[in-house]
């Protein structure tokens, strides 16, 4: 996502407090979370590029950058504590703070998965093993879908946009399908003329990508929580989409 297309912060959920410092604290917290999300996308794209391309330096770069996301998560935690201690948030502010704390956790774990993909790539490519084209195509498609989901989830956080969160839910079957396609290919000896250890490494990579996609869904749940005041974790997605799309008023 380019800077020009970047998330636009909707002002009414974070801004407008009589105490303007409160606005600044919430904006800073949300900025940290958005930065974490954007880095997750970069890390995932870098790890997948390392797997699919010739240049392994992408994988090393992903591993080098992983601690930066951990530090951002620590900063976000500190900001959350500070806001709670100073402001005792209520209502939508309380939901914003709780949701951002949870989203920081989701983003941090998603970044761990990106690093796992990078490590798996280094293992797979250690002896210059070539990635079979059909598997490569499948992982590329899965990676693109996953990165798109994470990008959308971060854009949804930037605006606390429940409509965008619903789009993420609606696209989840596509993520599962992409993951399933890779799994099927890895289970087909004709398409995967690789030793079992290499197939195992690719399975782990596909699993990690699938998990990153799930984190995007979990982030979208938090967006709904803030915008709608409903905790939708563990709710059936189809019923939830139906309920939110066709609510009265």
């Amino acid at each position: 996502m380019t800077e020009a297309e970047g998330p636009v912060v909707r002002t009414n959920l974070v801004n407008g407090h009589t105490v303007r410092a409160y606005d600044r604290e919430l904006t800073r917290l949300r900025g940290l979370i958005i930065e974490m999300g954007e880095r997750v996308v970069e890390q995932t794209q870098g790890a997948v590029a390392a797997l699919l391309g010739e240049d392994l330096s992408n994988a090393y770069r992903v591993l080098d950058r992983e601690p930066q996301i951990d530090y951002l998560a620590l900063d976000a935690d500190e900001e959350v504590f500070r806001v709670i201690a100073r402001r005792q948030p209520t209502a939508v502010d309380l939901r914003v703070v709780l949701a951002l704390a949870r989203i920081a956790g989701e983003a941090e774990r998603a970044a761990d998965k990106a690093a796992r993909i990078a490590r798996g790539t280094l293992d797979f490519r250690a002896d210059d093993t070539a990635l079979p084209p059909s598997i490569g195509d499948g992982l590329r498609a899965q990676g693109e879908r996953v990165c798109c989901a994470v990008q959308r989830s971060i854009a949804a956080v930037a605006q606390f946009d429940s409509e965008l969160a619903l789009v993420i839910f609606e696209n989840e079957p596509g993520l599962i399908e992409a993951s399933h396609t890779v799994h099927l290919a890895l289970c087909s000896p004709a398409q995967t003329p690789l030793p079992p250890a290499k197939i195992g490494a690719l399975f782990n990579i596909a699993h990690a990508l699938e998990h990153i996609g799930r984190h995007a869904g979990a982030i979208a749940e938090q967006v709904i929580y803030v915008a709608e005041g409903q905790d939708v974790r563990f709710r059936n997605r189809e019923i939830l989409i139906e309920a939110l799309r066709h609510r009265p008023g």
Partner: peptide, 8 residues
């Protein structure tokens, strides 16, 4: 209510 209790 929300604007009041959140200090807006």
């Amino acid at each position: 209510t929300e604007d009041y209790i959140t200090g807006r």
